[in-house]
Amino acid sequence: MNAASHTFDTLGVKLLVVSCDTKFSHKRFVETEPLMKDFKLMMGADNTHKVAKAFGVYSKADGVAIRGRFLINPEGIVVAQEVLTPPVGRNVNEFLRQIEAFQHVAATGEVCPANWRPGKKTLPVNTDVEAMTGNVGSYITLEEILS
């Protein structure tokens, strides 16, 4: 996340990372771990577990927050979430792709089909539902989706 923070900045996305550690632990972690040398993000200290519980990512068994990421739009609505068990890390590029798609939708009202990336074909605004039902292939081909 930190390595991509410039991209998040460019997209106008504010970042907050949270664990159930204390702020003292966060400071020590950033200061001692070589991999954290260039880390510049805001780190929430949810040592009361309230925030993790509110977002549904608190593991009572382990007393920690499991890996959950949430994208919230400017209106305060959660538009995407991904939650993984601890042993597997996330892929920041997929998250960035989703952010760009959600922002494109918010700006244009268009619909971003599977695999959409900036520059790829969207489905049109104010689509005639009756004309499109069972006929999406007239608007976009499978090859265009998979490209």
Binding site: M1, K14, L16, A45, I66, G76
Partner: peptide
């Protein structure tokens, strides 16, 4: 909640109000 701002090296607090009106990504670990 309490927070540590790794950009400034200072202890602070963060709240949902700090993020109102912005696209926001919150990542738990």
């Amino acid at each position: 909640m309490d927070a540590y701002d790794a950009a400034t090296g200072r202890y602070t607090t963060v709240s949902s109000e700090d993020y109102a009106g912005h696209w926001t990504a919150i990542c738990f670990y």
